[in-house]
Nucleic acid binder design. Sequence first.
DNA 1: GCTCATCATCAGGAGCGCTGATACTTGTGG
DNA 2: CCACAAGTATCAGCGCTCCTGATGATGAGC
Lengths: 289, 289
Amino acid sequence: MDAVVATGTFGEAAKLLGFTQSAVSQQIAALERAVGGSLFDRPGGPRRPVLTPLGRIVAEHAHDLVDRAGGLTEDVRRFSAGLVGRLDIGTFQSVSTAVLPGLLGALRLRFPHVEVRLTEDPEDAVLARGVIDGRLDLTFLDGEPTAPMEGIELFVDPFVVVARPQDVGPGPVPAELLADASLIGQTNSSCERLITGGLRSLGVEPRYIFRTNDNSAVSSMVRAGMGLAVMPRLAVDLEDPRTVVRSVEPAMPDRQIFLVWRSDRTLSPSARYLVELAVAQTAYLREQP
Amino acid sequence: MDAVVATGTFGEAAKLLGFTQSAVSQQIAALERAVGGSLFDRPGGPRRPVLTPLGRIVAEHAHDLVDRAGGLTEDVRRFSAGLVGRLDIGTFQSVSTAVLPGLLGALRLRFPHVEVRLTEDPEDAVLARGVIDGRLDLTFLDGEPTAPMEGIELFVDPFVVVARPQDVGPGPVPAELLADASLIGQTNSSCERLITGGLRSLGVEPRYIFRTNDNSAVSSMVRAGMGLAVMPRLAVDLEDPRTVVRSVEPAMPDRQIFLVWRSDRTLSPSARYLVELAVAQTAYLREQP
DNA sequence: GCTCATCATCAGGAGCGCTGATACTTGTGG
DNA sequence: CCACAAGTATCAGCGCTCCTGATGATGAGC
């Protein structure tokens, strides 16, 4: 119909579209039946058909529709190229501060127009549920993925003791020492449970004098001399000269960091790329234990 | 595809649409071939299919498209009901002031959302051309429509002499008197040509001392005693006590007012209604000559 | 391990839509 | 005034698309 307006005659339009004049005629007739009124005035003879007022309305809408349809194919193309889309990632504090910044920066280089949304939660279970019911495309977890999830182990993040230099000796900290120490710890969370459980497995019942979920607040407490802290190493600023980091003796169970997704959902290109990136960028953490 | 999302399974969607599950399956498969990627993750077994990220994009656009299509049918419906549309009308001064206001007021009652655009021009030919090449849906003309136009005669508007009461006698004005009189007239226009031609057919060569295209300015001149005017009666304020209206003896050829349109173009509902209105509202002009 | 629910695939058939020919309409030129 | 040109409408025929119904495959739950 647009072609008819553009070319001026049914026949020309047909040639333009690769049809016969008959086909165009029938198409217009069908359209007119559908809308219940003439779309073109056909003066008869060699004079060109002209849009009726109703025809103008239909033509405008038709234009709009093909524009929209073009927008669809365009968006599909851009999505395939990774130029558009959303990426919902679950994370927790230590990963957010230590791993994600570099990861998202690199992701942005390749997928500048993908909207990344982070969901941070101290509870592993919340993140896992997010992946399972589709709110999250990917999530970091500090344990092996189960059930409908699968994932890849990125690195092993050991638990370490953070203390002022004057409060601990040079070597690993004996577990017994922790039993007597004032501990600064996290509030109830999956990470805290791992720490507490790990200490108990060494026969140590931790005695927390202060709890917060903010890792930098924990560090501040340690620096202020309020006690020791047992933290995932990833959450510790290793460069800070006012604190030292020690392993525990005997060793606590490690924390494994996974990047997981639902095994039966297709990942977007950006998500697949993020997994690659994560594996590459955390390689150094796997090599130096 | 929307139905699949809504119902959760292909089979349910098929039932909803009145198809078989097989048909829906093939439709989705075809769509996936078209966009070049999976639209749904099918977990297999009795678990429900879920949109992929690409599927979400396509689904959003699809929604948009059906909305637009709905907008089309809605607009077609409203147009048929006359609730939307445009109406381009050609007119000239006397009709604009004497006929159109009432006409457009009544039109507005029935078609409140039709956009009316007026094109006023003193040249009949301009208006006629507007109709012929489609810029105008309807136009008023002061002569019989020709060629590809057709129309309806609304009324006969006689030419009358406008004068101060003291300047003319009680009965019709003899044509000879006009030959000697100072005349106030219109600038070159189809109306002016009708007047001049009409006077000449009575053997009178008009002597204009002032010309303007503004009818009320002509009346003012007459009131100021500058001379007489020959005008279409429609353009004269009959109620003004400071002027009187006289016919010419012998009678001048009358001016016929037509409302015309292109015969081979379909008129919009509002245009058809306006024609009816015009016939009805000018009935009184046809009965009392 | 069997059953149930679900989707994919396949062959067959109905209908839509295009082709090509023909008829109809109207302006143009001799 | 008639023949012609340029355009659309209409019709029969046919191919292709899309739906149906049956069958196979897959995974969860009992």
